[in-house]
Write a protein that binds this DNA or RNA. Structure first.
Lengths: 216, 216
DNA sequence: CACGCAGTAGGGGAGAACCCCGAGAAGAGC
DNA sequence: GCTCTTCTCGGGGTTCTCCCCTACTGCGTG
């Protein structure tokens, strides 16, 4: 294969410089961006093979780029690059469509290898991440807010949503009360509100409602 | 790294021979099995680093091996090997705990590379598979292998199964009684039997049990 | 025929669920 | 300051769940 055409998105100048020099001569760097909006425009314009994408950026982060470009240029593959190995971050970008996720402590050679693999269609994960990404998958994807707006869910207050999750899992009022360190009566109160707002009549319907929305 | 210790499970003699010669000198082959039960025993006994596991085998398939060994030897990593690239197969083994999945048309060198990567903790997928595995993840995989014979479900009488379905949908005893034209007390009676036989304690667990088996 | 099993049904009770009502504290907004 | 929402908590009551127990009927098997 020829050198893959790579686009680099990161808001840290230093990191871009480091990556640029590590990858010099190994891949074809077709552009860089240091913020979300510019990244989206340039990626769509240049259609690189692989986008090296920082996860944490002002203006929506890497997920925003993935969403925007994914529709316009589905052939562009994304390799998420992050200092974080937090499960939520990883899962969020994977769900948004990234084909790989590596942390920034990998070597230049490993990064190059990862880019070639992603360009070839492989999925690439750092060893430490592979485990829980697949675990999360095998357990069944936990939900991710990240954007989608649910008018019904939005009616609920934060506390009500917390209570809802326990109830939908089959916890009794008493269990939830212990879990949240409040009175069972308060739990009851929240559940009543939830049932009323969602126009449901009992906890079984609530369980179904929640599981349809993948809140469990 | 030293050569990883590899165990090979496949019911086709020809394929085992092929793999054996391809991997000779590259990895340390510590054993082989051609059927599920033997595979489970030998893997647990020998604790290899990586198990090369055929997906389609009589006696439960690779998933049965994954399940049985996963509990006893959680450190053993599995690389699923299959002629099939059907989404259901792939997803089933991933959910059962496999750390990788490659099809049998890969080269010996690629297979060796995949084994080393899995041994190191990486997740490995054939290019063609990486896409939809991650797609399934991002959409949220909700596939189940077809339920063949279910010993737990078999314990239940016809009537108990009828009642179970209503209860799992959130019907009250009274509702079910009306539906089946019997007394609520009889419904209660059946539910008690079901809970006892399945060793569950309440209707919520029953709902989960039923939905896992697609009885709704 | 005796026995076990599936299906039917009821009594009684402890605890959970769900409903009505009211009410105080804390914070956000006009 | 006043209001509105959220979160908190209680009393009191009805219904539902789940458990214990007993008991009758019909049906197939040894």
């Amino acid at each position: 294969m020829n050198q893959p055409r790579v686009f680099l998105v990161d808001d840290h100048e230093l990191i871009r410089t480091g990556i640029r020099s590590e990858l010099a001569g190994v891949v074809e760097l077709v552009g860089e961006a240091d913020e979300v909006a510019a990244a989206i425009d340039m990626i769509i314009e240049r259609s690189p093979d692989v986008v090296l994408l920082d996860v944490h950026m002002p203006g929506g982060g890497g997920v925003a780029v993935l969403r925007a470009v994914g529709d316009a240029r589905p052939s562009v593959r994304f390799l998420a690059l992050s200092v974080s190995d937090a499960a939520d971050d990883v899962i969020a970008v994977i769900r948004a469509g990234a084909r790989g996720y590596v942390t920034k402590n990998i070597s230049g050679a490993e990064l190059a290898d990862a880019i070639y693999r992603v360009a070839a269609g492989d999925a690439v994960f750092s060893p430490r991440l592979a485990g829980f990404v697949l675990d999360a998958f095998s357990l069944e994807g936990r939900h991710l807010e990240a954007g989608d707006v649910d008018p019904e869910l939005d009616q609920l207050t934060t506390r009500e949503r917390q209570v809802l999750r326990f109830i939908a899992r089959g916890y009794t009022y008493r269990d939830v009360a212990v879990e949240l360190a409040i009175s069972p009566k308060t739990v009851e109160s929240h559940v009543s509100s939830v049932l009323r707002k969602l126009q449901l009549t009992n906890r079984h319907q609530l369980s179904r409602w929640a599981s349809e929305r993948h809140l469990l």
